[in-house]
Design a protein around this nucleic acid. Structure first.
Length: 269
DNA sequence: CTGAGCACCTGAGGGC
DNA sequence: TGCCCTCAGGTGCTCA
């Protein structure tokens, strides 16, 4: 999937087609993604009055006090004005500016239609931690949040209760930049470690957003262009290749059933 | 409450 | 060519 930078890039890519536009055509071609999909008739004709991102969700607020909640899952993608309908094109949103197609082969994505007033208390949203790029994601917050966490820092960074939007790629990349070993127990990190970590999470995500998101197998910009942050990865996907900093071979391990990449020399336990 | 493991699902790529 | 295995960006549920 798309991690936070890809979601952010997708949102910006789709915005000119959707924002302040009426949804003149809505086609929903799949009964359920991760959860059942809504009835197109309830969405059609509404105008998109605002677009925002929360964690990896894209929220499209509609004129009738309802909101479309979109999550790209692992393999979801939005494309503008796709020339032909293909397999796994699940949802089409048409406005006078163009058509947005939501494609998601694995169907781990989400498309829900909810009253806007219910968003804050919705089970998927109510327990989310702070935004990594927000002002409340600080060293003292993280220190407090990790105090009782004896789990390894890498999977902990991917826990949405602690902080949202840090996925498998950027967790590894941020830890590398911070010189922190991914297996370090979260509560053992000092404030100085956490200060570095916060700084590098923000920096890594910001760099990736500037670069237009990473271009992994299933991700392209909404306009079809490829992001190029991928070429800047220091550790992710680089098993056995030399560390950019010290030439040691990058190691791959498994944590919480997910691949973790790190440099055993630069990142000490 | 916590942490570990499994679940959802398709498609790409490697080995034989 | 084809079969089988493993792996992939996420995240919520169940069970011990």
């Amino acid at each position: 999937m798309p991690e936070l930078p890809e979601v952010e890039t997708t949102l910006h890519g789709a915005s000119p087609t959707l924002l302040h536009q009426p949804l003149t055509g809505v086609t929903i071609r799949v009964p359920k993604l991760r959860l059942p999909t809504p009835n197109a008739a309830n969405i059609q004709g509404q105008t998109v009055i605002n677009l925002e991102r929360r964690a990896k969700y894209i929220l499209a607020h509609l004129s009738n006090h309802t909101t479309l909640l979109l999550h790209l899952g692992m393999s979801g993608r939005l494309t503008i004005n796709k020339p032909a309908l293909e397999k796994n094109d699940h949802i089409l949103l048409q406005t006078p500016k163009g058509t947005i197609t939501f494609t998601d082969p694995r169907r781990f994505g989400l498309f829900l239609h909810l009253p806007t007033s219910q968003l804050a208390s919705h089970p998927l949203l109510k327990n989310l931690g702070p935004e990594p790029l927000g002002a409340t994601f600080t060293t003292s917050y993280l220190h407090q949040a990790l105090q009782k966490k004896s789990t390894a820092i890498k999977p902990t960074l991917m826990d949405n209760h602690i902080v949202v939007g840090v996925g498998n790629i950027y967790a590894s990349e941020s830890l590398f930049r911070s010189h922190i070993h991914p297996q370090t127990r979260a509560h053992q990190l000092t404030k100085s470690h956490l200060n570095q970590l916060i700084k590098h999470i923000k920096q890594t995500l910001t760099d990736a957003i500037k670069a237009g998101g990473s271009s992994l197998k299933d991700f392209t910009h909404s306009n079809g262009q490829l992001g190029y942050f991928q070429s800047q990865f220091n550790v992710y996907g680089r098993e056995n290749q030399p560390c950019h900093r010290c030439q040691t071979k990058i190691k791959k391990i498994t944590q919480a059933q997910r691949a973790t990449f790190f440099c055993p020399t630069c990142q000490k336990l």
